[in-house]
Simulated scan of single mutants.
Amino acid sequence: MIPFVDLKAQYLGIKDEVNAAIQGILETSQFTLGQEVAAFEEEFAAYCQARYGIGVNTGTSALHLALLAAGIGPGDEVITVPFTFVATVAAIHYTGARPVFVDIDPRTFTMDVRGIEAAITERTKAIIPVHLYGQPADMDPILEIAGRRGLVVIEDAAQAHGAEYKGRRVGSLGDMGCFSFYPGKNLGAYGEGGMVVTDDPDYTRTIRMLRDWGAEQKYRHVLKGYNYRLEGLQGAVLRVKLRYLEVWTEARRVDAAHYDELLAGSGVATPEAMAYARHVYHIYAIRTPQRSAWQEALQAKGIHTGIHYPIPVHLLPAYADLGYAPGDFPHAEQAAGEVLSLPMFPELTRAQCEEVGEAVALLAKQPDIEDA
């Protein structure tokens, strides 16, 4: 059996260091925020080439607080993409603002920058590009439009730890960058976690208060805040794992290159890494109109796969009130019907890659296979 992700294998490789880090938290009893979280904030911000990091309890909370710090609220509009995990849009909704969608570029699955200008209105206050699957969005045009129009840029980098755009780390390109440390991420906690990184001291001060009940100091509540604090245990674990992130990233890139070789000439649509990008392959998504049949056939061979994501946000029942309809964002809709995520994790072996690649290539030779 080849799992889609193998978190246990990763733990076994760093078991002693992780156990020592957890024991340290038990001994200091700094269970919420504390020294380990503060140290991780500093280290991860530096890794992202940013000045400040503010640890929070989830990536969703990171987006929510970044939007609030930027002054986004009821009556405002925020531009993003419909082909993303629902949290991107949920965070906009939490502020009372309206999500406005731009279709994706089918080559990259990230925001098609050609659609941004037409989506801007007098109510537009921010743009959230999503660095999907580990590939950065095309940031220069986004930043140029935002600068000219006076818009805040908040990067959703939940799937792109260590990804680079023209040599610069994602998260440090816009006004703020938001990361998730959900366990399956390239840098994952042993539970939930998130972070906002930024160079702006005012945003930093505001988000630090908002995550901790709006308090400037204990019992002095300056803002109406939230309980979005990062746990000390997660900070300690993430500090250990951050030391391995570059090694794990290169392992992912090697595995992706191996998949590329195995599937070259098969007719399978494989990920296209842009020349401007250091793709970190949180997800290795191929495309096929026969996805259900392929997924079922791979499962029968003991190969686990995923779908990221089967329904674009504008077609989810929860967001029907936005008024979008089928056909509004054709590239997002087509991708949602075709993407299939192959096993991808740093401990994936060459033999496992070959087994997966050969199985997929064989499926591509069966054009008459019936989709479910």
Rank of each mutant, 00 (worst) to 15 (best):
Q35R: 15
R211V: 07
T204G: 00
N227K: 10
G232H: 02
D260S: 08
A277N: 07
V113T: 15
D328S: 11
M176H: 02
A45H: 03
A372H: 15
K125H: 07
A46K: 15
G71D: 09
L362P: 00
Y219R: 12
P3W: 01
A9P: 03
H331D: 12
Q366W: 10
E43I: 06
E347D: 04
K15L: 10
D103A: 05
V56T: 07
S61L: 07
K15S: 13
D260V: 03
Y190D: 12
N227T: 13
P289I: 08
A146H: 05
V237K: 02
Q290E: 11
L230N: 04
R239V: 00
T249D: 11
E41D: 11
G174M: 09
D175S: 11
E250D: 13
T270N: 06
W213F: 15
Q299F: 13
Y94D: 09
R208F: 01
E27N: 14
G357H: 02
E155W: 05
R107S: 08
K224D: 15
H308C: 10
A264D: 14
F109E: 01
S292Q: 14
R278Q: 12
F31M: 14
Q159G: 10
D138C: 09
L12T: 12
V237W: 00
V222E: 12
Q35C: 05
P106N: 10
F83D: 02
Q135R: 08
A320Q: 11
H331I: 00
Q159W: 03
T84M: 12
A146E: 03
L316N: 06
L262P: 00
